[in-house]
Design a protein around this nucleic acid. Structure first.
Lengths: 177, 177
DNA sequence: CAAAGCATGTAAGCAGTTACATGATTGT
DNA sequence: ACAATCATGTAACTGCTTACATGCTTTG
């Protein structure tokens, strides 16, 4: 249950190189995943071994050869099986909230500082996120349905940060800080 | 950045055994953490090595000896340093949303099935969660401030599931399913 | 001239999950 | 009789992150 399927997902649009996939992951903020080369290249290796993707090596004159990965029918089947599988509940791990659980003993000043910093970080993240959404997270846009889904996915991610911000601000007020 | 601090947090209330801590974690739904003995006992071992906790072994006649862990001043200092440290952004990893990203090609029936199952799982989880909140997630309730914070933490967790449910239902409607 | 981008990877480690192991006691 | 609770742990594995390594090209 992991990156393998997201890779297959991207490859179901069109062939990509590992490098391009890595960028896609970094850009697709709604995945909330900081995957790096390690995982991408490793997963691609595994997918190739299983026959879920084929590799075409395209030599380049001055740069390292590009390895273009193409999904096979077997890969498409695997992707579909995953899509239709049991749904996973969201994992709302929130370290900062866990922190807040133990802050009741702190002084007003200390608690206020913590809350203010958190508000700041969330606000920064929201600005960043908004900008990236505006620039347009590239979905393949092969159908109106796909466009709608990707639009809603982007919005939902942003809404997560926004509701966290609203929550922490109202908590701050309630605490008289 | 992990369980160590949550353990120190609980121990800052009063001494606990590893077993009790494990249960606390399981009960504190708002932590969204399924930590098991492995991690708890391992972390306690580490904390003891560092001198953040002391151990008192209380032999029992028929059951294994209870090891009661008490936080030291060093442990309290470490906890406080963590509390005042840089805030962490929430990690909204949502595997099901990632799945949805690749579903645009599926048939109406298939997509409807996926969405319906997800709605079902979320609804079940919400019922479970509500019940557990009602039973009362035990906070130490040493002050009105602490009571408020724990109340809001519980609510926020529930709200996460509820807004996910609302989102998926409105998406379903928009997709004409 | 430095930084960012293209393009591939490796190494090491932490966090967290699942499953296993032991064994007595209490509740249904 | 079976399951749950008390109470300790170990083993194996997956997923993910951080940091490193190489080397050329394009942009500011």
């Amino acid at each position: 249950m992991s990156i393998r399927y997201a890779i297959l997902g991207f490859l179901s649009w069109k062939p990509f190189t590992g490098y391009e996939l890595k960028k896609r992951f970094a850009d697709a903020l709604s995945f909330h995943w900081a995957g790096t080369s390690n995982q991408v290249y490793g997963a691609l290796l595994g997918l190739h071994k299983e026959g879920a993707v084929t590799i075409e090596v395209i030599p380049q004159e001055k740069l390292p050869a590009r390895k273009v990965y193409t999904i096979t029918q077997k890969g498409r089947d695997e992707l579909k099986t995953w899509l239709l599988g049991d749904p996973d509940l969201p994992a709302f791990r929130n370290l900062q909230r866990t922190r807040l659980a133990w802050t009741a003993d702190l002084s007003d000043d200390e608690l206020r500082t913590i809350l203010t910093h958190y508000v700041q970080r969330l606000s920064d993240q929201i600005i960043l996120y908004r900008e990236q959404l505006r620039r347009g997270e590239e979905s393949p846009a092969r159908s109106s349905r796909e466009i709608l889904i990707w639009k809603r996915l982007g919005e939902a991610s942003l809404a997560g940060y926004e509701s966290e911000l609203a929550w922490i601000e109202s908590l701050k007020t309630e605490l008289g800080l």
